[in-house]
């Protein structure tokens, strides 16, 4: 099974809380279902970030419970009933908070890892 092997090799462990950020960011471009979100993250990360379904769905349901995203059943382009998640107003605020936290974090990380470039 080449696909499976590849998956394990390229896998990067997501930092705690980054999955939430990725989901919220993905939903910024419009409502999407679970599979769509996982495909989008994978594509946008250049096949590097593989979202484990065992983390994705708990995260989606947790975010829904925190009312940052809202779920509704809609029919997909393939005429299939699917559960679509969309960003709420509170979710948008949370996203900008997470984004600024993330850029602080990545700046800080970059500073530590490449001290002479700064």
């Amino acid at each position: 099974m080449p696909e499976k092997k590849e998956r394990y090799q390229n896998r990067i462990e997501l930092l705690q809380g980054t999955l939430d950020l990725l989901i919220l960011q993905t939903l910024q471009w419009g409502p999407q279902h679970g599979y769509g979100i996982s495909v989008a993250i994978r594509n946008r990360s250049g096949e590097i970030l593989q979202v484990d379904t065992g983390s994705l769905y708990p995260a989606l349901h947790r975010l829904e419970k925190q009312r940052w995203i809202k779920a509704e059943w809609k029919v997909s382009e393939n005429k299939q009933r699917a559960k679509y998640y969309r960003l709420t107003a509170a979710g948008k605020k949370q996203l900008s908070r997470e984004l600024s936290k993330w850029s602080q974090l990545s700046d800080a990380m970059a500073g530590v890892l490449n001290p002479d470039e700064t």
Partner: peptide, 17 residues
């Protein structure tokens, strides 16, 4: 049941692709 359906949809979409 919703969770069931949601995951089933995921699987069938992945297969479809």
């Amino acid at each position: 049941t919703e969770l069931d359906e949601e995951l089933r949809t995921h699987l069938s979409m992945a297969a479809q692709t």
